[in-house]
Design a protein around this nucleic acid. Structure first.
Lengths: 111, 111
DNA sequence: CGCTAATATTAGTAATAGCTAATATTGATG
DNA sequence: CATCAATATTAGCTATTACTAATATTAGCG
């Protein structure tokens, strides 16, 4: 599934924004999303599964809790896809500066 | 409409990739997309309209042709949204380097 | 072990998105 | 002006998606 298909949903984006600030239990995520979107625990759990299955988030167990963390690789795909447009808003940056800036040196096929 | 809702569709992404390489007429876009996705002129035209309406592309007339160009602002929104995740893959870049690299200095509320 | 809390799963439903086919519009040209 | 080429629009259909309600699972605890 393409990264953008996953990011197309506002609930999933909100969950990722939350996870960007650090790990959170399923319950935490449910609380925030329920407050902001008014949807049920079931719906949030389903979205968490989609994020897991698509590789945007990882989980570990802590007793009966599930602790979710953001998994950055898929988000970097989006960042890479944007490369082809960066010339439109970074027109004066030379190649080296861009490389350094974006941390791309030798990264692309090494990790 | 949120930028990611627009980018969630593979046909729209392909059109933007094409426009990233330079201006193209509607007919050019139709030819490429039809070859790669097998959809009709009508469908492509509808997607071009969505891109226009959402501010991802602009058009100008050239006789009976319509020439499309990418409009970068909406794509930059996506780039900005990714900021919150960059620490995951650019952990060692200091703040100044990041600013320079990403061309953000005084940019955010000036343009 | 039986109960409760935390989370996940399943089945069914309603709204939406993207498509085709048909038609309309617009500009160029003989 | 009639016609053609390029593009846009509309109506209707279908598949998908995200949801709720109900139920299942799993861990901790008395």
């Amino acid at each position: 599934m393409h990264a953008f298909d996953i990011l197309g949903d506002p609930v999933r984006r909100r969950i990722l924004e939350l996870l960007a600030t650090g790990e959170h239990s399923s319950g935490d995520v449910v609380a925030v999303v329920h407050r902001e979107f008014g949807i049920t625990q079931s719906a949030v759990s389903q979205q968490l599964r989609i994020l897991r299955d698509a590789g945007f988030a990882s989980v570990r167990a802590d007793g009966t809790r599930r602790i979710y963390a953001v998994e950055p690789a898929r988000l970097r795909e989006v960042d890479d896809w944007l490369d082809r447009f960066r010339a439109f808003w970074l027109p004066r940056l030379d190649a080296l500066a861009t490389e350094v800036a974006r941390g791309k040196r030798k990264r692309r096929h090494r990790e």
